[in-house]
Amino acid sequence: MTNTETDWLQLNRENWDDRVRIHAVSNFYDLPGFRAGGSTLRSFELDEVGDVSGKRLLHLQCHMGQDTLSWARRGAEVTGLDFSRAAVRAARTLAEDIGMTDRARFVVSDVYEAPAALDGERFDIVYTGLGALVWLPDLLRWANVVSSMLKDGGAVYLAEFHPLTELLGEDGKTLEHDYFRTQAQTYDFPHTYTDGPPLTKTLSVQWQHPLGEVVTALAQAGLRIEFLHEHDAMLFQRYPMLERSRNGEYRFPAGHPRIPLMYSIRAIKSA
């Protein structure tokens, strides 16, 4: 393992701290629209998680807190956790702006240190949103953290980009990458994924996790898989042939061969 990979946590934290200044003013995140009442949750998430009124929800890797606060707007008592102090500052400000400080709090911590950071608290729901798992090297450790923070009978809900989307090239036609490439990958990208100026901290370290690894980690942590759903929609135009639907999601055109673009998992901690 290279020195860059051994320093993955510091590099990724610096990278995400730097992204916050860009994301906070980007059209992609549209914080003014969120302050005006918008929600960043996908319709399938609302259906699959169900009613959260009065429930305690922990959002791991919450970034600037829009998904977290969207759950708060639906009645949950929420805790958002992120390793970026800049992101947590932005989330706290956003909570103040929309009058949610009585129902939402934000904590600075690496995922693996979450139980200590939250003093052993347990929750009805642990939620992890899109694009989170690639930043974690050890999924069994992650799943054990999740399990330890759930109440008996509580549920973890995960929505993620499907690992198959990482196999194709930018044209969406050419198979370019290995599905079983699980070793650390170091990237040097001058821009984040939103509109805006260049980054100053450009290095990051990521891991690709096959779907079987995710399911197995949850099962080995003692959680019962309730469902695994694969979805044919994406949040952005990942490939040139994807077409935008009326609800803002992107799909392959009618008659085009499809691969799953996102997936969701719900797992229960036995009482």
Rank of each mutant, 00 (worst) to 15 (best):
H23C: 08
S39C: 14
K173V: 10
E160H: 00
A104P: 12
R224K: 14
D110M: 01
S245R: 15
N247I: 05
T128D: 09
S39W: 01
H63N: 15
M234W: 10
L136C: 02
L218D: 12
I125P: 08
L60A: 10
V214Y: 05
S70C: 06
D7Y: 00
Y157M: 05
E77C: 10
S264T: 14
D232M: 12
F227R: 11
L31S: 02
T202I: 13
V214S: 07
A117K: 02
G196S: 09
T200Q: 13
T4S: 12
W16V: 04
R238V: 07
E113A: 15
G50L: 07
Q185D: 12
V215Y: 00
M64D: 08
N12K: 04
L140Q: 10
H191L: 14
T6H: 11
I259S: 04
R35G: 06
E170I: 01
F44T: 07
R35K: 08
V146M: 09
D110N: 12
P190F: 04
D138P: 06
W71Y: 12
E230G: 04
E113K: 05
S148P: 11
T165A: 01
L167P: 06
H191S: 11
L261C: 04
K269C: 11
T128M: 14
P190M: 06
Q208D: 09
L242D: 13
R244K: 15
D82A: 05
S147H: 11
S43Q: 11
G38W: 01
R105S: 14
F83C: 09
P260M: 03
H23S: 08
N144F: 00
G131A: 03
Q66E: 14
H256S: 14
Q183S: 14
A36T: 03
P253K: 05
H63I: 04
L46D: 03
T79W: 07
S148K: 02
T93V: 06
D67N: 13
F28W: 10
Q185H: 07
L69V: 12
L31Y: 02
E170R: 05
Q185T: 13
